[in-house]
Design a protein around this nucleic acid. Structure first.
Length: 492
RNA sequence: GGCCCCAUCGUCUAGUGGCCUAGGACACUGGCCUCUCACGCCGGUAACAGGGGUUCGAGUCCCCUUGGGGUCACCA
């Protein structure tokens, strides 16, 4: 078989949303797997919606994800001549005909039928117009659309979908559909096929919502004498109400951009998205790029739609918990240098970046990231949960105050005492700090935990965190002493 | 409404007639560890939509019902 060529043809109606991203990912993986090519084609036929901004949004989203394409982006509007020529050819070869029926009339008929819960199909009034009748109408300046001539004999369009198996659709159930508008502009159904033929697409991997279009497109392929590509329809991603997700009705939670903003790693998102409707067949869920390309196959795509289980208004999750979990996995295991690079923009954005993190404080910076990342799930967590490591003006969790400070009012005295002990340390490191803290606790005849957790709250603002002595070491003597001394403000 | 498609734990899924008293992951939850914890480790709750067949045997095959989705534009 010849080279595998797949395409991702977004129409720029908004941002790249996760459903579109998933389609792109599947196509990209398939191309990579078979050493094929991925063609990016922008379906910008609808001029009103195709703003430069939304085109950029899509390219931007793909680039961020690391979805690379081999050809394009092509723009559908640049191939208008191809589309027109194909329409003319269908007309010339008798596969299509001009229809002079008034749109208003047809619309009315359809509405009536739908209201009466009846099926409606174009009645083919113009299909059998004689040459003279056509001439007369054209001479009269009547506008016309071009309709495709669906075979009238018994039979069906049959094709083998790689995911859904054998799909059959009777000719009788397909109406003579419009392929060119009365203003001469070809419709998507035609354009899409013409473009795919020209781009020599061998496999069409797209959402299941394209499944119903496929029989009509196959008819066009045949009429144009082109070789059929292989079709593979993938299940859709639905929202909690089982509706198709869309930027319009779900907002930024379904936009790829949003995940960049909240600190997802591109690969974390990809790994999550690929699992929505596909599985390797074994129990693996975490894949490196190489592993995923090796494991991916059309056979692994399942047939039922999946639900994007995002937790709206839940501060603990922000989005689908599994997405966060997978992202967290990569955050915890990736090389820290790499993560540092990704973290920098987030710190900078929050005003927490220090140029020294790239120079004299590089080691400290990397060590700190390594220390705190285990409990974080997104890059943004470094600027929120981890703020105390990079700045002095951090928030203190109320629950931490309640649990670790309020219960022991005497900490108002003990903490500054601990500060003095630490300040007096000639050699300040996790061992000496630990000894000092435990010794003080012993002298005060209190459990070390009381002192330690009190210190944790005052020094990091958080209830949870890494081992306290490592934290105290990484924060450094000056900061720790200052924060402990200032702890009285929590006891006012 | 016509046509097409789908149906396993809350969610993502494994399962292609016996290996399923249904496996994994996330979430939830119990315990352990510990100075704390949204780290880690160990354990638990939780699903084959319903009904008929076929078969020695059905989550797996067939039919019906129910439920869900898609699509039916001079949108893409």
């Amino acid at each position: 078989m010849s080279e595998v060529r797949v395409r991702f043809p977004p129409s720029p109606t908004g941002y790249l949303h996760i459903g579109g991203a998933r389609t792109a990912i599947y196509n990209w993986l398939f191309a990579k797997k078979h050493n094929g090519k991925l063609v990016l084609r922008i379906e910008d036929t609808d001029a009103e919606r195709s703003t430069q901004e939304s085109i950029d949004g899509i390219l931007d989203g793909l680039r961020w994800l690391g979805i690379t394409w081999d050809e394009g982006p092509y723009f559908q509007t640049e191939f208008a001549a191809d589309h027109a020529a194909a329409a003319q050819r269908l007309l010339d070869t008798g596969h299509a005909y001009k229809c002079f029926c008034a749109k208003e009339e047809l619309d009315a008929k359809r509405d009536t039928a739908m209201d009466a819960k009846q099926d409606y199909k174009y009645d083919k009034t113009c299909r059998n117009l004689s040459a003279q009748e056509i001439e007369a109408r054209e001479a009269a300046g009547l506008p016309f659309v071009i309709r495709f001539k669906v075979p009238e004999e018994d039979g069906a369009v049959v094709f083998e979908d790689q995911v859904y198996g054998r799909i059959e659709r009777n000719y009788a159930d397909i109406e003579d559909f419009v392929i060119v508008r009365s203003n001469g502009k070809p419709l998507y159904l035609l354009c899409n096929v013409v473009d795919d033929i020209r781009d020599r697409i061998t496999h069409i991997i797209r959402g299941q919502d394209g499944l119903a279009n496929t029989p009509r497109q196959i008819l066009i392929y045949r009429a144009l004498g082109a070789q059929l590509p292989i079709f593979a329809h993938m299940p859709l991603t639905l929202d909690l109400q089982k509706r198709k997700i869309s930027k319009r009705s779900h907002g930024e939670i379904v936009a790829v951009q949003y995940y960049r903003k909240i600190g997802f790693l591109p690969w974390g998102l990809i790994n999550f998205l690929v699992l929505l409707g596909w599985s390797s067949g074994d129990d693996r869920e975490i894949f490196s790029q190489e592993e995923l390309i090796a494991a991916f196959s059309l056979e692994g795509i399942n047939r039922s739609n999946s639900i994007f289980n995002y937790k709206k208004d839940d501060p603990k999750f922000i989005t689908d918990p599994k997405a966060l979990n997978i992202n967290g996995h990569y955050l915890h295991t990736m090389p820290v240098e790499e993560m540092a690079t990704l973290t920098q923009p987030f710190l900078a954005e929050a005003g927490l970046w220090d140029a020294a993190y790239e120079g004299s404080r590089r080691d400290w910076f990397l060590n700190t990231l390594t220390l705190i990342r285990d409990r974080y799930y997104t890059l943004a967590d470094f600027t929120t949960l981890g703020r105390a490591y990079f700045a002095d003006d951090f928030e203190v969790e109320e629950r931490a105050v309640e649990k670790n400070l309020a219960k022991n009012p005497l900490l108002a005295e003990w903490l500054p005492l601990l500060a003095d002990r630490l300040a007096a340390l000639p050699d300040y490191n996790r061992e000496t700090v630990e000894t000092a803290a435990r010794t003080l606790a012993e002298e005060l005849t209190i459990k070390p935990g009381i002192l330690i957790n009190g210190a944790r709250t005052v020094v990091t603002g958080c209830l949870a965190g890494p081992g306290m002595f490592e934290v105290l070491e990484t924060l450094g003597k000056d900061r720790v002493v200052k924060r402990l001394k200032g702890s009285s403000r929590f006891f006012a």
